[in-house]
Nucleic acid binder design. Structure first.
Length: 519
DNA sequence: TTCCGACAGTGGGGTCGCAAT
DNA sequence: ATTGCGACCCCACTATCGGAA
């Protein structure tokens, strides 16, 4: 199959907004793929490369050579060359990758270059990713979409499922089941505004502490242990503690879902940044970054399989019962069962539990419906996370031009807190929380306040106040106050408030001290 | 007809490994 | 030794489509 065909279909997919039409277009292309091409064609049209890392990003792609006049590149050839590029390492690697990318792009037509650019850059932006590619694949082979989705979630990659389906037809789906040692897409949580809303939506549920660390999926088969991240990268070697813990469990095999955090000598959690630093550090590194050498604590909250038995379809309550049997208390997340959330006393107990979780320094709670199965790969309403939200009134210092559907609008705001001398300290940026109407309005208002424009960032007079919600503060070397806002988003503009009454740096830093009390 | 679940897009800060400077 | 790039941890929110109610 020629790359030109993929580029053409991708363009058509991008040009229609109807999801049903996107799926039809994808299915048509997938039907034409050979079984051995499918593991490449299908990820490409889902905007992903089978090579997880190529070492090539936007910077390396900056200068494109003149395009070829005629399409000659096959999909197989592109995949082969990208595999070569990904394998380059050592001294001179960057220049060599750049050269090889240049050779590849020179063999591509203008339309193919546009496709490769976005594909390699990781932002295809055609309005279809894995979910629609799965539907397209199902349509192409005449299999039930839900079964194909489940096979991909349990059986690993889209490419592997595609190859089997195109070669063997719908019957091949039976082979894709949960297998110890092969990672499963983790179940994800939706957000709820507060605990009451979560309890109302969940029905009979358990309230669990939400720990601020790194999600891990631990597989044990006999003496063999493997640990995976949320995106299914294997990190076994970086977390020897987890192997030791898994081998200590009274089972022959198991798949566990949990979080790794780090606790100080008082049992309070270390900052997420420190945990992420430790988890990101390879054992070979003699590093001294923040968190290097920090001992990690795994805390498990679900079990997907144990001793040859698959548990995914059991209700949460039954999976929890198994978890309690195979994992000792200190390694399990704390949890309060709330069988009847409508009951006032039960609700009060849930609230007290959640307050205690926060008092102990954790992030919040997750409310889990007791009757729900483990929905691999789904961000369903069966799990609802609740975290406290902080707000500040900050001043817009500048705004960046938006991209894609935000082209033409000023989108990403630079936010500052007031200093005693009337200047402002930037605390971060945000592009979240705005409706199209707000984008339209702020673009006009900020243009009136503009004092400089470098083509990307429009600097404005610091007069516009905006209420910002965020989850907390984190250490920063980038921003002058030494802290940055975590997950900042716009709540509303405060045109009623002059910049002279915006929140001060001192107020912000006091928040930080309250978040992490000494001793 | 209206409602709502699932998706994709739009980017945020921090940290590491690795190569270039 | 420091800097820049790529990758990957954590992530919130809105708009849209299309099936459910």
């Amino acid at each position: 199959m020629l790359l030109a065909e993929l580029a053409r279909v991708s363009g058509e997919v991008a040009a229609t907004s109807a999801r049903s039409r996107k799926v039809e277009l994808l299915a048509g292309l997938f039907r034409d793929a050979q079984p051995d091409e499918a593991p490449v064609v299908i990820p490409y049209l889902a905007g992903r490369l089978p090579q997880r890392r190529t070492g090539v990003g936007w910077s390396t792609l900056r200068e494109a050579p003149a395009p070829a006049a005629e399409p000659t590149l096959t999909v197989r050839e592109v995949d082969r060359r990208l595999g070569e590029i990904a394998a380059v390492s050592g001294k001179g690697a960057q220049a060599e990758r750049k050269r090889l990318v240049g050779v590849l792009l020179a063999a591509a037509t203008a339309e193919e270059q546009f496709f490769l650019f976005r594909l390699i850059g990781g932002e295809l932006r055609q309005g279809a990713l894995d979910a629609l590619a799965v539907e397209g694949l199902a349509a192409a082979v005449g299999a039930p979409p839900e079964e194909v989705r489940r096979a991909v979630m349990l059986g690993g990659s889209l490419g592997a499922v595609a190859r089997a389906l195109l070669a063997g037809g719908p019957a091949a789906l039976a082979a894709f089941r949960l297998e110890v040692g092969r990672p499963v897409q983790p179940m994800l949580a939706q957000s709820a505004k507060d605990l009451d809303e979560a309890l109302d939506r969940a029905g009979p549920c358990a309230v669990e502490e939400k720990l601020d660390g790194i999600r891990v999926q631990v597989h044990r088969e006999g003496a063999r242990v493997r640990v995976f991240t949320r995106t299914l990268d294997e990190i076994t070697e970086r977390l020897p503690e987890l192997t030791a813990v898994a081998l200590g469990l009274p089972v022959s095999s198991a798949v566990l879902d949990g979080e790794v955090i780090a606790l100080d000598e008082h049992g309070r959690p270390h900052a997420f940044q420190d945990v992420a630093g430790r988890v990101g550090t390879r054992p070979s590194a003699a590093g001294g970054g923040p968190g290097a050498g920090l001992p990690l604590s795994p805390v498990f909250f679900d079990v997907l399989a144990v001793d040859g038995q698959e548990l995914l379809d059991l209700p949460t309550a039954e999976r929890h019962a198994v978890l309690e049997r195979v994992v000792p208390g200190p390694l399990r997340v704390r949890r309060l069962a709330v069988p009847d959330p409508a009951d006032g006393a039960a609700r009060a107990a849930a609230r007290a539990f959640a307050d205690d979780v926060l008092r102990r320094g954790h992030e919040g709670v997750v409310v889990k419906a007791l009757g729900a199965p483990y929905a691999a790969g789904r961000r369903g309403a069966a799990w609802l996370k609740v975290k406290p939200v902080l707000t500040l009134d900050l001043v817009v210092l500048a705004a960046e031009r938006g991209h894609g559907r935000r082209s033409g609008w000023l989108s990403n705001l630079h936010l500052g807190a007031r200093r005693p001398d009337g200047t402002f300290a930037m605390l971060g940026k945000t592009f979240k929380g705005m409706t199209d109407a707000m984008l339209e309005w702020q673009t006009g208002r900020l243009r009136e306040l503009a004092v400089a424009d470098d083509g990307h960032v429009v600097t404005v007079r610091p007069e516009l106040v905006v209420e910002i919600a965020f989850d907390g503060l984190q250490r920063s070397t980038r921003y002058p106050a030494g802290v940055a806002l975590r997950f900042a988003r716009v709540v509303r503009y405060r045109e009623d408030k002059p910049a002279a009454e915006a929140d001060t740096v001192e107020t912000v830093l006091a928040l930080g001290r309250r978040e992490a009390p000494p001793e």
